[in-house]
Amino acid sequence: MFEADDIRDWRGEPVVDEDGSKIGNLEGVYYDTATQQASFATVKVGFPGGGRLIFVPLDGARVSPKHVRVLTDKKTAKDAPAIDTDGELDAALEPEIFSHYGIAYQPGASGERRLGRR
């Protein structure tokens, strides 16, 4: 396992928890607008043709040729805030995502968003 130069290269690959249980597949990456570091990933969960995108933190995540391992457990991830597979992250949902994982949320100095997708 190693850190990724660009976590976006693993789109479509399985995301597993610290015990190796599959959570879903990596769909997108959200960057912290203040630091430009990959902060959260959206993971597609649910049935084919439907499902939803849940948010999981990328702090401490590692990659291998076959998956991305995150430092959260599957149950916590599955209970995380979500958006529709064709939806967009609403600014009002950002604090809830951070809170779900016990991470302090601080908007930008002028109230700007913390997460931006690339």
Rank of each mutant, 00 (worst) to 15 (best):
Glu13Phe: 11
Gly50Val: 08
Phe47Ala: 12
Ala91Gln: 10
Ser39Tyr: 07
Asn25Glu: 11
Thr72Ala: 10
Leu53Thr: 02
Ser21Phe: 13
Gly51Asn: 05
Glu88Arg: 13
Thr42Glu: 09
Tyr105Ser: 06
Ala109Lys: 13
Glu94Met: 08
Gly28Gln: 12
Asp84Gly: 15
Pro48Val: 15
Glu13Leu: 11
Gly20His: 10
Phe98Leu: 04
Ile7Val: 15
Leu89Gln: 00
Arg113Asn: 07
Gly12Met: 07
Asp73Met: 01
Arg114Asp: 03
Trp10Asn: 02
Gly51Ile: 04
Gln37Leu: 13
Lys78Ile: 04
Pro81Ser: 07
Gly28Ile: 03
Ser39Phe: 10
Leu71Glu: 14
Glu96Ala: 12
Asp9Thr: 13
Lys66Trp: 08
Pro48Lys: 15
Ala61Asp: 03
Phe55Lys: 00
Ala82Asp: 09
Thr85Trp: 04
His100Glu: 04
Ala77Arg: 00
Lys78Tyr: 03
Thr76Arg: 09
Arg11His: 12
Lys44Val: 09
Ala34Gly: 12
Arg52Gln: 15
Thr35Tyr: 08
Leu89Trp: 02
Val70Ser: 05
Ala77Met: 02
Thr42Met: 05
Pro57Leu: 02
Pro57Asp: 03
Asp86Trp: 09
Val43Asn: 01
Tyr101Asn: 02
Gly28Leu: 05
Phe2Ile: 11
Gly60Pro: 07
Asp19Trp: 14
Ala34His: 15
Gln36Ile: 09
Val15Thr: 05
Arg69Leu: 07
Gly87Ser: 10
Ile83His: 04
Ile97Glu: 01
Arg62Met: 07
His100Tyr: 08
Asp73Trp: 02
Glu112Cys: 07
Gly111Glu: 10
Val43His: 01
